[in-house]
């Protein structure tokens, strides 16, 4: 019996999603095999690691994170540059925490996003609050003001995918389709989106949770999304997957207790999701990002 007898080829390949614009873009996805099965197929793009930046000074953030970014918290551009230049993050994910403020003005927020996007050498991932109502005016305006940047924008949910999706379509962005840890709902949203939105500009966010807080469920769902795309070749589940790990990891009791524990917590959560099939991971602490990078090579 030869080694090859144990290898499989699969009928599905994950779509490549290009984030960014010409001269300033990255690609995620594109694999035709299961996560890390380099011996079975081709994985043209390793999982990318992004660090998260907020557009306001984070309230109630762990002191272990605050101390890392203390000198740049006032200025998202400086913060983002520190993530890229000092810590070598592949990308930056901007969390629109300012949308949570009373009287938040979508245009002001969007213009600030544009300023950040233009100042960076890499494309921007932008996450709204995840609130079905309040995200709509903000993300629509971000899409409009940042037209042509080709950002990865989200989350779009079952209740607001139409409005945000149409703006993203018109102004040339990709979107993050988020559903609450349920593979059937994930497919449902992709079915609805793909009626008007190109499938190769969708990234799936199955909504992950931190180690000890339901990570086993997140793993199972993410693993199945990938298997359905790769093994069964389901056209509506072939999108790359994003795992937004940092914020939840650092909210845990364990992460708050000590810096070392927090870093391990975040790194293990991210690694677990990488094994499940995440193509893009968003973390908060540079040291946990380095641990993940060292492990997945």
């Amino acid at each position: 019996m030869k080694f090859n007898d144990f290898l499989d080829t699969y009928k599905g390949d994950i779509k490549e999603v290009i984030i960014g614009k010409e001269g300033k873009s990255v690609v995620i996805g594109g694999e035709n095999t299961l996560p890390f099965h380099y011996f079975e197929g081709s994985i043209p793009h390793k999982p990318l690691l992004a660090l998260e930046v907020w557009d306001t000074i984070p309230a109630n953030w762990s002191p272990h994170l605050l101390s890392v970014y203390q000198d740049v918290l006032q200025c998202p551009v400086a913060w983002a540059k520190k993530c890229l230049n000092t810590y070598n993050a592949d990308l930056v994910s901007l969390y629109l925490s300012s949308a949570d403020e009373e009287n938040a003005n979508p245009t002001t927020i969007a213009e600030n996003v544009k300023k950040i996007a233009e100042a960076l050498p890499v494309p921007l991932v932008v996450y709204g609050l995840g609130d079905k109502d309040r995200d709509v005016p903000v993300l629509k305006e971000v899409a409009r003001v940042c037209a042509g940047e080709g950002m990865l924008l989200g989350p779009v949910l079952k209740d607001n995918y139409e409005e945000i999706g149409k703006a993203a379509l018109e102004y040339g962005h990709s979107i993050i389709a988020q559903t609450p840890i349920d593979i059937n709902l994930s497919k449902e949203l992709n079915v609805k989106l793909s009626k008007f939105f190109p499938r190769e500009r969708i990234v799936i966010d199955p909504l992950s949770s931190a180690l000890g807080y339901g990570l086993d469920y997140s793993f199972s769902i993410m693993e199945r999304v990938k298997q359905v795309g790769v093994i069964h070749g389901d056209e509506l589940m072939k999108m790359p997957i994003i795992g937004n790990v940092g914020r939840d990891s650092w909210k845990t009791k364990e992460a708050k207790e000590s810096k070392e524990q927090g870093i391990m917590w975040e790194a293990l959560t991210a690694l677990t999701l990488a094994l499940a099939g995440a193509n893009l991971l968003i973390l908060s602490h540079p040291e946990s990002m380095h641990l993940v990078r060292k492990t997945i090579g």
């Binding site: 059937n184 994930s186 079915v191 609805k192 069964h232 389901d234 509506l236 589940m237």
Partner: peptide, 12 residues
């Protein structure tokens, strides 16, 4: 189990 279920299974 041949195709993944979603509420839109008849639309695709």
């Amino acid at each position: 189990g041949k195709t993944l279920f979603s509420n839109s299974w008849l639309e695709i």
